[in-house]
Nucleic acid binder design. Structure first.
Lengths: 333, 333
DNA sequence: CTGTTAGCGCTTTCAC
DNA sequence: GTGAAAGCGCTAACAG
C-alpha cells in the first residue's frame, strides 16, 4: 500500500491543529461547522483512513475480538457445526463493528500461548468456540482474559453460552422409547469433554426414568469421524444389533448408516439410528436422519452479543445462558 | 485484562534504557550477555508481552493477513468448500506467524469499503477467497492493495491461485462420454462468475471434440442450493430426462439426487449425475457421487505461502498458479 | 470553538 | 555495549 494521508497532512492543508482534525473526524460536537466541513472534504479528497494501531494505542480499544478454534487437528472449520457457528459469530461481530481474528500459537517468529497472543494483540474480548479441553493453555486463557465467552463449556468466570445438552439426550431417548426401541447403544464422544459428560447424564437419567437402564450400552468414540463410526458399527453388527444406535453427531451417523446399508441391514426396520447437531447433511442423506437440531446462527449471535455488551458496559462476570434444542424427525427412526 | 508490564517497567527495574531492553528482547547481537540475561529474566517474571499496536506502529509490519469471504449472504463459511479452504489458509498463516482477520464492511461505528478496512487495519496482505464478483468494492480492493492474492479469480495484478476449472469439466464430460452418456444437462452457476465461465468453456470445448454439442443443454442455476437444484431437477423430470445431469457442486447434486429418488428414478440406471468439489458429503450420501475433487488443503497452503513470500521478499506482481483437479468415481455414473 | 502539550509502547538513528 | 531523543499516528487533558 502507498503512504496514506495522516491527520497531520489534513491539519496542515486545513490550517488547523491535529486536535481539531481528530475532533471533526470523530464527530465531536465542539467543532465549527465550516471547519468541520472543510476537514471532511479534505479527508475524502485524500482518501484518508485512520490508522487502527495509532488509534488503539491511544484509546486502548481495538474493536477486535479473538476467537479460539482448536488448531492442532482437523476439527476446526472442517467440522460443519463449528464452521456454521463461526460464520454466525463473524456476522454478528461485524454488525457490531468488531473484527474477528483467529487465536493462534504462532506469532511472528515465535511460539506463544493463547493468552500471550491475546495480550499481545489486545483484543477487546475473546470467544472460545471449540477446543481441546485438555490443553492447559485454554484454561489459562479463559481464567486470565477479562472479557471472555465460551460455547458449550463450563467456567465460572466466563460468559458460557451452551446448548441444553441434557435435554437433547432426553429428547433422543424419549423419542426412541416412544417408537418402541428399548435396547440402545450410545456411541458418545470423549469422556473428558464437558459436552459428552452432560449428554451422558441426560441419557442415563432418562434411561433410569424409562426403566431401560439395563438395556443401554455405551461406547466411547474417542476421536469420532465417519470412518471411526463405520468401524464401530461393524463391530456392533458382529456382536449383535440393538434396537437403536445413537451417534455422537450427524457425520458419524452417516458413516454408521453406510456401514449398515453395506451389510444389507435396513434402517429403521432392523435398527433405528439417530444423529446429533442437525447440520445440513442430516437432511441430504437418504434416509434422512432423525437428529437433534442445534441452532448455530442463534448461538453465534447470542455469544457474540453478550460478549460485546459486557465489553461496552464494562461489566465482566461469568454467567450461563442455555439454548434449547429440538428434535428433527427423519427417516431413520 | 490487567495493566501489562511494558518495556519501561523492565528498563527501570534492570537499570538500563528502553533501547537496551528492546534490543535484548529482539535478539540484537550488540547486547552484553549479562544484561540480556537479566532483561529476559525480568521479562519472564513480569509475563511481559510486547504490545502489537505499538510495535506495528513503529515497524509498519502487522504480522496479520486479511481474508475476504462474501459476507452479505449465507455462502461464507457455510459452504463446506470455503470452510475447508479457510481452515487451510488459517493453518498456513499461523505456521508462518501471521494472524488471520476477516475483512468486513462494518468497522467501529461506521460503514466502510473493504479497501478502507484494509487500509485502516494495515494488513501485510489480503486474500480474497470467495466473493461476489459484482461488488465493486471487491475490485477496488484487489486493485489497490499491494500484496493481494485471490482464489479462483482472474486479476492481472494479483497472485491468482486457481483450480483448473476447464480441466475439471473436460474430465467430467469425457467420463460421461466413456460411460455412454450423450445427452447431458449442465446446471451451472451464475454466468457473471469467472469459475462458471471457465467451466462452461471447458464443457463446451469438450462437447465439441466429442461431437455431442447438439445433445448438451445448459441451465443457469443462479444462486444454487440443494433446494434450488431440487426444483430444477423436478422441472427436468417433467420435461424429459437426459442421459446425465451435471450439477454445479456436490450439495446441489445431493439435492437433485433426492428429487430423482423421490420420483422413483434410478441413478445411474435411468439417469447419471455428477457433482463438483469433492467435499466430504459426496462420499457420505448414497449412492456416493462421482465428482471432481478440488484439494482444499493444497489451495489454502499455496495461496497463503505465495502471498507471504511476496510480502517478505517485498516483490508484488501478479501471476497465476493453476492447481490440478481429479475425478472421484462414485456410484452415480 | 481551537490549540498546546503530553502520552499510548515500541523502534531506531546517532552519538558516545 | 549503551543511551538520548525523535518519531510512528492518534487522542485527551488543559488552557484559553
Amino acid at each position: 500500500m502507498f503512504n496514506l494521508a495522516t491527520i497531520y497532512d489534513i491539519a496542515k492543508e486545513a490550517k488547523v491543529s491535529t486536535t481539531t482534525v481528530s475532533r471533526a473526524l470523530n464527530n465531536h460536537s465542539s467543532v465549527n461547522h465550516k471547519t468541520r466541513k472543510k476537514i471532511i472534504e479534505l479527508a475524502e479528497k485524500h482518501g484518508y483512513q485512520p490508522n487502527s494501531k495509532a488509534k488503539s494505542l491511544a484509546t486502548k480499544k481495538s474493536w477486535s475480538l479473538g476467537v479460539l478454534l482448536i488448531d492442532d487437528s482437523d476439527s476446526g472449520l472442517n467440522h460443519t457445526l463449528f464452521a456454521n457457528i463461526i460464520n454466525s459469530i463473524s456476522k454478528t461481530a461485524s454488525k457490531r463493528g468488531y473484527e474477528l481474528t483467529f487465536l493462534s500459537k504462532n506469532l511472528a517468529r515465535s511460539t506463544v500461548s493463547y493468552l500471550e497472543h491475546a495480550n499481545y494483540r489486545g483484543f477487546d474480548g475473546v470467544i472460545v468456540a471449540n477446543t481441546n479441553i485438555n490443553d492447559p493453555h485454554v484454561n489459562e486463557l479463559i481464567k486470565n482474559v477479562k472479557f471472555i465467552a465460551c460455547i458449550d463449556q463450563n467456567h465460572s468466570n466466563a460468559i458460557c453460552v451452551n446448548y441444553k445438552n441434557r435435554d437433547g439426550m432426553e429428547m433422543t431417548l424419549n423419542h426412541l422409547f416412544s417408537k418402541g426401541y428399548r435396547n440402545v447403544i450410545y456411541i458418545h464422544g470423549q469422556l473428558d469433554n464437558y459436552v459428552t459428560q452432560e449428554r451422558l447424564i441426560g441419557f442415563k437419567e432418562t434411561a433410569k426414568e424409562l426403566n431401560i437402564e439395563r438395556k443401554c450400552k455405551y461406547i466411547e468414540g474417542e476421536y469420532t469421524s465417519p470412518q471411526k463410526a463405520y468401524d464401530i458399527t461393524r463391530r456392533i453388527i458382529k456382536e449383535g444389533l440393538p434396537d437403536a444406535i445413537v451417534y455422537s453427531d450427524d457425520y458419524c451417523a452417516s458413516g454408521g448408516l453406510r456401514c449398515l446399508r453395506e451389510h444389507g441391514i435396513n434402517v429403521p426396520k432392523d435398527v433405528a439410528i439417530m444423529g446429533y447437531d442437525g447440520v445440513e447433511i442430516s437432511s441430504l442423506i437418504t434416509p434422512s436422519l432423525t437428529t437433534i437440531y442445534q441452532d448455530t446462527d442463534r448461538i453465534g449471535e447470542v455469544v457474540t452479543e453478550n460478549l460485546i455488551n459486557s465489553i461496552e458496559n464494562n461489566r465482566s462476570h461469568g454467567y450461563i445462558i442455555e439454548l434449547p434444542v429440538s428434535l428433527i424427525l427423519g427417516e431413520t427412526t
